[in-house]
Design a protein around this nucleic acid. Structure first.
Length: 262
DNA sequence: ATGGTGGGCTACCCA
C-alpha cells in the first residue's frame, strides 16, 4: 500500500500535474492540501477518470484538503467513516480530513503556517496543534493502524532544513514550540516514516518560489508521513518525488510517499 | 534589513 501526500497549492491550477503524477507514481492513497476549492467545484469527475475516488473538504481561496484512493487498490479504495475537521474544535478553515481505507485510518492535515513567531497566526498554530494532539490520542485508540500525513509546516530537525543557522529556534517552521508540538505527537506513538527509513538523507519537500530556491536547493522537509507503532513495522520504503517541482508552473511542494508491505 | 514569486482575485491576502 503506497500512501502519499502533496500540497498542490490550488488543485484548479495543478490538476494536470496531479493527473500526470497519479499515472506514473500510482499511489493507493493520496492526501492533498491547499486545494483552494469549494466542494461544489472539486474536480471529482476528472479524478474518477484517472481511476481515483475522492473525498474533500474545501473552501474558496484558502486551505482545503482531500483524500484520493485508487479504485483498483485492495478493497477497491473504498473510503469509510469520513470525518472533516477536528471534533469539538470550531474552525472555519478547512485543514483536516480523515477516512478509513483498507483498514488504515488516514488523517490528512494542512497545519497552520503561523506566519512569524509571536504573531496571532502563530498563536493559532500552537492552539490548533494542541487540538490535533488531543484528538489524535482518541483517534489512535480507536484506530491502531493510523497514518497522520500532510503539510505540517514544521521541519522536524536540522537535517530537514538547508540552513540550520537561518532556520533556528526563533524562526517560523522551526521554532522550539512548534518542534515541541511535533515531538508531542511523535511521543504518542507515531514515527516519521521518511526519517525512520532514511536516517541520514537530507531531502526536502518544499522550496520557496522566490530567490531561485529550487535551483539552489534551499528547501525544507515539512511534508511528513507519521505512522503508528503498528504500521511502523510494515514500512518498507519512503521518499520524496522532486520531479513535479521541476515541471512548468509547479506547486511549491513535492509529493512525499511511504510504501507499506502487503 | 529588505524583498524576492505565485495563487487567487481585486485584498489592510496568504504562503
Amino acid at each position: 500500500m503506497k500512501i502519499a501526500s502533496w500540497n498542490v497549492n490550488s488543485l484548479n491550477v495543478r490538476l494536470p500535474h496531479l493527473e500526470t503524477w497519479l499515472a506514473s507514481a500510482k499511489p493507493d492513497v493520496v492526501a492533498l492540501q491547499e486545494t483552494k476549492l469549494e466542494d461544489t467545484r472539486f474536480p471529482d469527475t476528472a479524478i474518477a477518470a484517472a481511476g481515483y475516488r475522492s473525498v474533500f473538504s474545501g473552501q474558496k481561496t484558502y486551505n482545503g484538503v482531500a483524500i484520493l484512493t485508487r479504485m483498483d487498490a485492495p478493497g477497491g479504495g473504498v473510503l469509510d467513516d469520513v470525518q472533516a475537521g477536528i471534533p469539538g474544535f470550531e474552525d472555519a478553515q478547512k485543514r483536516v480530513l480523515a477516512a478509513t481505507v483498507n483498514g488504515v485510518r488516514i488523517v490528512d492535515v494542512y497545519v497552520v503556517n503561523g506566519q512569524s513567531v509571536g504573531s496571532e497566526k502563530y498563536a493559532y498554530k500552537l492552539r490548533w496543534l494542541e487540538a490535533l494532539h488531543a484528538w489524535l490520542r482518541e483517534e489512535m485508540r480507536r484506530y491502531p493502524r493510523l497514518v497522520l500525513l500532510g503539510d505540517f509546516n514544521i521541519a522536524p530537525r536540522d537535517l530537514d532544513v538547508h540552513d540550520p543557522a537561518q532556520w533556528n529556534d526563533d524562526h517560523i517552521l522551526t521554532s522550539r514550540p512548534e518542534r515541541d508540538a511535533l515531538d508531542g505527537l511523535l511521543a504518542q506513538g507515531l514515527h516519521d516514516a521518511f526519517r525512520a527509513l532514511n536516517p541520514a538523507e537530507r531531502a526536502f519537500s518544499w522550496w520557496d518560489y522566490r530567490q531561485f530556491a529550487l535551483r539552489r536547493d534551499l528547501g525544507l522537509r515539512i511534508d511528513l508521513t507519521l505512522v503508528s507503532d503498528m504500521l511502523r513495522a510494515e514500512c518498507v520504503a519512503a521518499g520524496i518525488d522532486k520531479e513535479p517541482r521541476t515541471w512548468e508552473r509547479p506547486s511549491d511542494h513535492a509529493p512525499a510517499w511511504v510504501q507499506l508491505a502487503g
